[in-house]
């Protein structure tokens, strides 16, 4: 909506008219749902972390890895059984931001392109949604690490 620069007067006029009829996203309701759906997912994650701490030799430090793996496994099951997209429609960012949302985007793409075979279909399309998350995530991590290294070298930290 912000890019109105190249519109002719007729187009602008029409878009004003159209805006009147457009159903707005219920932003506050979405935020609220995202808040508690996201919170719930994280609470489940925390419970799994404690499970690993109590019953296995994992510390708070090391329990992260098996927890992430378990969460992704659960999200894989929910995606496969066709539940996660409904959670997504309801929870929005709350279900997209935690690692389960990442798992969902990978697995959904993998399931979708199974019909094109394992190499060209699953292999080629698995990361079509998650690919940019990985790329920009790794790049951002690199930049942050670079800044931290420089600070440490300069003696700020």
């Amino acid at each position: 909506m912000g890019k109105k620069k190249n519109l002719t007067p007729v187009q602008q006029q029409y878009q004003q008219l159209e805006q009147k009829h457009e159903i707005k996203r219920p932003v506050w309701k979405n935020c609220l749902n995202a808040f508690w759906v996201g919170g719930l997912i994280c609470a489940v994650g925390q419970a799994i972390t404690y499970f690993y701490i109590y019953f296995f030799d994992f510390t708070e430090q090391t329990a992260g890895n098996p927890t992430v793996a378990t969460m992704i496994f659960i999200s894989m099951l929910l995606t496969g059984f066709g539940v996660y997209d409904h959670i997504g429609q309801f929870g929005g960012a709350g279900s997209a931001v935690p690692v389960t949302g990442f798992g969902n985007s990978v697995i959904a793409a993998a399931i979708e392109h199974r019909t094109e075979g394992f190499v060209l279909g699953v292999g080629g399309n698995m990361f079509k949604l998650a690919g940019s998350v990985i790329l920009f995530g790794v790049f951002a991590a690199f930049i942050v690490a670079l800044i931290k290294t420089l600070w440490t070298m300069m003696g700020v930290l």
Partner: peptide, 13 residues
């Protein structure tokens, strides 16, 4: 759009 099972939120439009 997105894969069928992808949990993206669709706007009311």
């Amino acid at each position: 759009r997105y894969p069928t099972e992808y949990g993206g939120q669709k706007p009311p439009t």
